[in-house]
């Protein structure tokens, strides 16, 4: 699966979208993320890889403050989106999450119609003035989610009735409908079969044109296929971060090398 020509990857440094400095996360007494510094670039797919429990999902959830919904979780350090501290007391997580969308491991469509699933975000953020505009937003999102052709005739059908891969693409469409600037994806393909996975990966590659995409994945092949930058997490530490090609072909840290060659994980 390493047949992707890694060297062809676009290695031009882009504008930094999110920067984290000295980020610490505690779950009760457990120190889950230890002093992570990372810069996530705009219009780039960044992959977080690492063995289970290494903290990559936890760190991802810090980026749009989803960890706020967990009582015992405490985040320290400095995370900035476009230079603004997202943990500033003045920041409303609701507004933040409109800018930093998220797609989850398990497809989780609301038990509503396909249309309402996609229209939900634009509705709560007041992005449309009338029904026609909303229709337009929904169609655009569904097209971006690469699922429009499959569902355009049954927008009123419940979203839960779709297949797993369709559900996940619906969830991606739902996330892009709010026009986020960053899209976080937490193992978006782990519940999908290979064909659906390929479809979603293709989609991620297309989304890169407009968004900064951060993807957590278990599969190194997937990281190699879709990302330009890769971060390797191990036991709560960010071990190595760099160009995907470089991480996979010439890792600097022995732990990264062991993981990539399959000795830990």
């Amino acid at each position: 699966m390493y047949d992707n020509p890694l060297t062809k990857r676009d290695a031009v440094t882009k504008e930094v979208k999110i920067s984290a400095r000295g980020c610490q996360v505690y779950y009760g007494d457990t120190h889950a993320i230890k002093d992570v510094d990372v810069d996530i670039e705009d219009k780039t797919v960044t992959a977080f890889i690492g063995p289970s429990g290494c903290g990559k999902s936890t760190f991802l959830r810090c980026l749009n403050r989803m960890n706020d919904t967990i009582d015992v979780c405490r985040v320290e350090g400095d995370i900035r989106l476009d230079g603004e501290d997202i943990y500033d007391p003045k920041v409303d997580p609701v507004q933040l999450r409109a800018k930093v969308g998220m797609v989850f491991q398990k497809p989780n469509p609301f038990p509503k119609s396909i249309y309402d699933n996609v229209a939900y975000g634009p509705k709560i953020h007041g992005m449309s003035r009338n029904k026609a505009e909303l229709d337009e937003i929904v169609e655009r999102a569904l097209r971006r989610g690469a699922i429009w052709d499959e569902v355009k005739d049954r927008l009123d059908a419940p979203g839960t009735g779709l297949s797993g891969g369709q559900q996940q693409r619906l969830c991606i469409a739902r996330a892009v409908a709010t026009e986020p600037e960053v899209l976080l994806m937490d193992e978006p393909c782990s519940a999908l079969d290979p064909i659906a996975t390929a479809q979603v990966e293709e989609l991620i590659d297309e989304l890169r044109e407009q968004y900064s995409v951060v993807i957590v994945t278990h599969s190194m092949q997937q990281a190699a296929r879709v990302s330009q930058k890769t971060a390797f997490f191990h036991l709560g530490n960010l071990v190595e971060y760099g160009e995907t090609g470089q991480i996979f072909t010439n890792p600097q840290d022995p732990r990264t090398e062991s993981y990539i060659t399959g000795r830990i994980g």
């Binding site: 749009n64 989803m66 919904t69 609701v94 507004q95 933040l96 999450r97 409109a98 969308g101 998220m102 797609v103 989850f104 398990k106 989780n108 469509p109 609301f110 038990p111 939900y120 975000g121 709560i124 953020h125 969830c171 739902r174 996330a175 709010t178």
Partner: peptide
């Protein structure tokens, strides 16, 4: 399921 709540929070719902 919690996933349902996460989905809404992730979209920026209060």
């Amino acid at each position: 399921p919690q996933a349902m709540r996460d989905g809404a929070y992730g979209l920026g719902a209060t």
